[in-house]
Write a protein that binds this DNA or RNA. Structure first.
Lengths: 216, 216
DNA sequence: CGATTAATGGCACTCTCTGCCACTAAATGA
DNA sequence: TCATTTAGTGGCAGAGAGTGCCATTAATCG
């Protein structure tokens, strides 16, 4: 009745931080993806991944309710990067200019040694149906984040069909561009490939929005 | 060396026709979807579906390599209908006019008593992650069909990025519109809902193409 | 009818994933 | 320091998903 958010006399062992948990997931994810690439997804068992990551099988299944979700932490990194850029989109700028100025899918910051792995995963989703499914579900979750940004931008409710459509179209374009750069980077990531990716993405996204902005 | 397509002295029992096989799949599909709706996907076992459909479990797994693919035959019906309309798109017409004139997501022809089921499935994909994944994979397959039509239309190779992007964007728009009509039809399908669907879809698709057609 | 090929069903088996419980780890308060 | 409390881990058993193999049945042709 009274308190809703109060009562904080915590007692026992505190839960691990969300960051720590994410880190653990990412760690397992790396092992899993390596094995997936080496042997294929079907041929890689949960037991094997768990062993490689140094946890019990039971714990592994707690971190990843399905085997294919192992790719999630790595892929999320990529998608989150884009969402962050999008959220930082200043109102006065054209989207295309903002993307050209800000978006770098990873390289220069060097904050990320997983780029190769991420692209490897994207490539794998074309061979491994189970991974493709997981990938698409993940992208759709990103679509919601996109919709969120767009709704604010257009000053419309999240449920507005216009918002959903723009988000879906942008997401689709992004998917194509990503697949494209992944394919172009089979023999290693090059700066040109990444810049081409940004340019292609920026222009396509802009064109989609231009078409869709003629609402009603 | 010599013959490649010749040698047809068939001997034993002929394989069942593709149509017959599809019909069988559709039949099982109907039972499965009913059970999914009644009990949830997780709570419905392969054995149960097989029993309901009157085949052995082994045969069931031969028809559907994964449990979730049971929704495929029904959903494919819907997607195929759209693709057929698209393929019949005459070169001289604007897409939006063609859609308005031709596309009816099912009702009048009455050739289809599965509409309710299809929409039910689409709604279910929002509650059941496994179904969502299957749904998205399916939609992506439809995207390829779309790309096919668009490539011919634009006289570009299937691999052209412009083609991929247009197909992806159209597909995305279509997805939103479909989700929308499914949601609007919870309490039964109405003609208004379906016409609204067509209208929304037609105008959104047109807008996307308009934006994207400014190539390069 | 016998030969041939396709489809089905039954069985055993592996792998995925879950529930349950015991055990260890980290915090608090006495 | 020790008891208490809460969180995370591991082990074990078991249901269900899905596969390989083989025997059986169905359909076609000579």
């Amino acid at each position: 009745m009274t308190d809703v958010v109060s009562e904080k006399p915590r007692r026992g062992r505190p839960p691990v931080s969300a960051e720590q948990r994410q880190q653990q997931r990412l760690d397992i994810s790396r092992h899993a993806v390596r094995l997936f690439a080496e042997q294929g997804v079907a041929a890689t068992s949960g037991e094997q991944i768990a062993q490689a990551a140094g946890v019990s099988e039971r714990t592994f299944w707690r971190y990843f309710p399905q085997k294919e979700s192992c790719v999630e932490p790595l892929l999320t990194k990529m998608i989150d990067a884009f969402c962050a850029v999008l959220r930082a989109w200043p109102p006065e700028l054209e989207l295309i200019d903002h993307l050209r100025a800000t978006y770098s899918p990873v390289p220069d910051t060097s904050s990320d040694e997983d780029v190769e792995s991420v692209l490897e995963v994207v490539r794998m989703t074309h061979q491994e149906p189970a991974l493709r499914a997981a990938y698409l579900v993940l992208r759709e979750r990103a679509e919601d984040a996109l919709a969120d940004v767009l709704a604010k931008r257009l000053d419309l409710p999240l449920t507005a069909v216009e918002v959903k459509i723009q988000a879906a179209a942008m997401s689709a374009v992004l998917k194509v561009a990503t697949d494209d750069v992944a394919h172009a980077s089979v023999e290693g990531v090059t700066t040109e490939a990444l810049e081409g990716h940004r340019e292609q993405m920026a222009s396509a996204v802009s064109r989609v929005l231009r078409g869709l902005s003629q609402l009603r």
